[in-house]
């Protein structure tokens, strides 16, 4: 039985009358990558901040590394690595100094930090930028530096709040690659994201979060199997006939149909057969696409909304 690093029961966070997190339960095991998937405002960041011991829970039970975050915050934080949603790099310092100073906040000896800094900068592919000011780095490089910084104390748990939000696709892939390597090394990761592909690539287990609560929980594969079909047929019609088409398509046997503002999604076992059936009904879509189900479909099914709206 793997060790439980974070345990939450009925965990709740309220800001005044607004409930950001509403009684969630979960266990995080050593060595796993656990994801919180959900749209903006679902309560992911509030949960991360509570786990990071920088936000006391309003109600419920939260145990991190066997300790109480309210009473032992500094001690727990000494064992965490945090990648916040927005970079909090020290812009007045160079890349290398950022790691040095941050390591000192943990009380690590300078010689040890220097040794780790060299390794970490190499790991995040910033070795040649060590002497540069942080301001001069691109968004992706800053993100990688933040990740390197979060590892300076050899954390038991690495907390990543939307690690790739705001990065361009290429930079995002570099970050994913680095995080995947950490995962392979057995680092325990908690991450939040509203990107499906991120969650599918990085998470062993995830919860779908919506309106401050968990809507579903499982491995990415389990969630897709449970809440979606094998394939999805995406159809796009001329805006003029979009609604008529949606009406007619109801007759076609699909497990589920979603009519979005711009597209119609048919959840089916076999997409090509479904497309043939659509055409047989005398409907000719402008474009059609048969694809495999993703977590986006799971989310749509669970909440009736798209993730990035």
């Amino acid at each position: 039985m793997p060790e439980v690093l974070v345990r939450a029961r009925g965990l709740t966070k309220r800001f005044g009358t607004f409930t950001a997190v509403d009684g969630i339960d979960f266990d995080l095991y050593r060595g796993e990558a656990f994801g919180f998937l959900g749209p903006n405002g679902a309560g992911k960041s509030s949960t991360m901040r509570m786990i990071g011991c920088v936000s006391p829970p309003t109600e419920g039970e939260l145990t991190i590394l066997g300790a109480d975050p309210v009473r032992n915050g500094p001690a727990i934080r000494a064992r965490l690595g945090v990648v916040p949603q927005e970079d909090t790099l020290d812009v007045e310092l160079t890349v290398r100094e950022n790691l040095l100073v941050y390591g000192r906040y943990f009380g690590l000896p300078r010689a040890l930090i220097r040794e780790r800094t060299a390794q970490l900068l190499e790991f995040v592919q910033l070795s040649d930028r060590g002497g540069d000011k942080v301001d001069a780095l691109s968004g992706g490089m800053k993100r990688r530096l933040t990740i390197a910084r979060s590892l300076i104390n050899e954390p038991d748990i690495l907390i990543l709040d939307e690690p790739t939000t705001g990065l361009d696709p290429q930079a995002r892939h570099v970050v994913w690659d680095r995080l995947f390597r950490l995962k392979q090394r057995g680092v325990t990761l908690i991450l939040t994201t509203h990107y499906m592909d991120e969650a599918e690539q990085l998470c062993d287990r995830l919860v779908v979060m919506d309106h401050a609560r968990f809507a579903a929980e499982g491995t990415p594969r389990e969630l897709i199997e449970r809440y979606s079909t094998r394939e999805v047929l995406e159809l796009r019609f001329d805006p003029g006939v979009h609604e008529q088409a949606a009406e007619k398509i109801k007759d076609i046997s699909a497990k589920r149909t979603e009519v979005l503002a711009d597209r119609i999604l048919l959840y089916v076992k076999n997409g090509d057969e479904a497309l043939a059936a659509v055409r047989a009904h005398g409907l000719e879509p402008l474009t059609s696409l048969v694809r495999r189900s993703t977590l986006e479909d799971v989310f749509l099914h669970l909440t009736g909304r798209r993730l990035e709206d």
């Binding site: 064992r79 020290d90 906040y105 038991d156």
Partner: peptide, 30 residues
Amino acid sequence: LPLRMLPSAGRLARLRQAAGGPGSLRLIER
């Protein structure tokens, strides 16, 4: 990589040790 995934033994001792440092001095150092 400086990553040792430590077993839980001795964790409490490490927690205590980490909590005792003079944090202000380190910010002054910064």
